[in-house]
């Protein structure tokens, strides 16, 4: 398996290189480096020329690309054109914030989704099964931006109005209240509740369907019948032989999802003004800050590859039938 992992990583390197070329072209196409200067009416053409020279924008595309790649590999990401901060620092902060939101939402969704899936499968065709099936269809059909806005409206605005409190129970924007000192858990929770719920609505819908299908497949298998024939308790049949086996595909799916969420929270972050990767990306896009966009695209792409690799390895660990040579 070690050999397999090493091989997978080696295969990934050329793919990431190709991606970097595409990324470079894409980032340059969408983001004009002069955009940062456009806002200032007093900028003269000479300034722009000096600026272009500073950034090396007059060199050939190829020279610019290799120069950028060299710096990228050595970890020198440069400074943001607009925010004037080291890009590495900005990305690290955004990534951390995104991961907090993603992991909270994913953990909650997994717990609830798995539980719903188990009950729905065990009580197949019961009212619980039908209700949760209907709700998850609703959840799957409702895009995350709609869920987000409805949550802001109902749990943010209306709830405050009904309870007649001076400040909202759940905040509809940001990660912390302005001016909070240090780490205030309650304040954090009141900020993360709505964005995490917006994400969780979909994830729970998907995971509960997935778990239900997976567990039903297992429960209908021959080895569950064998387990029952052994005289072990129904509870043990369900947990040890049923759920444990049915969780394998779900676990790997969740691993893949973490990779996707690195760059995939754009909408949630926009709606709830969450200072993560998505917000950073859109801001950089509007600013034409290609210095930020380039490593951003590389990181999100790499996250997908890494997560997929982890998912595959996890599968091999959890399911003895899978062997990679």
């Amino acid at each position: 398996m070690v050999r397999y992992t090493v091989r997978r990583i080696f295969i990934t390197i050329p793919i990431l290189l190709v991606m970097s070329v595409l990324t470079f072209m894409g980032a340059r196409a969408v983001a004009s480096p002069e955009a940062a200067l456009r806002f200032n009416p007093r900028v003269r053409p000479e300034d722009i020329a000096r600026y272009r020279e500073q950034l090396g924008l007059d060199d050939s595309e190829f020279v610019q690309y290799t120069r950028w790649l060299g710096k990228f590999i050595t970890g020198d990401l440069g400074n943001s054109l607009v925010a004037r901060r080291p890009v590495g620092e900005m990305l690290a902060e955004a990534l951390r914030n995104t991961m907090v939101l993603a992991i909270v939402a994913l953990t909650v969704s997994l717990l609830i989704g798995v539980l719903i899936g188990i009950i729905a499968a065990v009580r197949q065709n019961s009212w619980f099964d039908y209700t949760t099936t209907g709700l998850s269809l609703l959840g799957i059909a409702t895009p995350v931006f709609l869920v987000g806005l409805m949550l802001q409206l109902v749990l943010g605005v209306y709830l405050q109005r009904w309870l007649n409190t001076s400040e909202p129970i759940f905040y509809t924007a940001g990660m912390t209240s302005p001016g909070t000192q240090g780490f205030d858990l309650m304040d954090r929770l009141r900020h993360i509740a709505l964005p995490a719920t917006a994400l969780a609505v979909q994830l729970i819908a998907v995971y509960s369907r997935y778990m239900r299908a997976s567990l039903l497949e297992v429960l209908n298998s021959d080895y569950i019948r064998t387990a029952r024939s052994k005289g072990i308790s129904e509870r043990r049949v369900l947990t040890k032989h049923g759920v444990r086996t049915a969780l394998i595909p779900l676990t790997t799916q969740a691993a893949i999802d973490i990779g996707l969420l690195v760059g995939g929270l754009i909408i949630t972050e926009v709606i709830f003004a969450w200072p993560g990767m998505g917000t950073l990306f859109l801001q950089a896009l509007f600013d034409g800050d290609y210095v930020v966009i380039l490593p951003w695209l590389m990181i999100t792409a790499a996250a997908v590859f890494i997560a997929n690799l982890i998912a595959d390895l996890l599968y091999a660990v959890l399911d003895p039938r899978i062997r990679y040579a």
Binding site: L260, I267, V304, N308
Partner: peptide, 18 residues
């Protein structure tokens, strides 16, 4: 497979903007 692995929304935004 490579296309499937692409973060679709980012791709859509970048290409759409071009």
């Amino acid at each position: 497979d490579a296309m499937l692995a692409l973060p679709a929304l980012v791709f859509l935004i970048v290409v759409g903007r071009i």
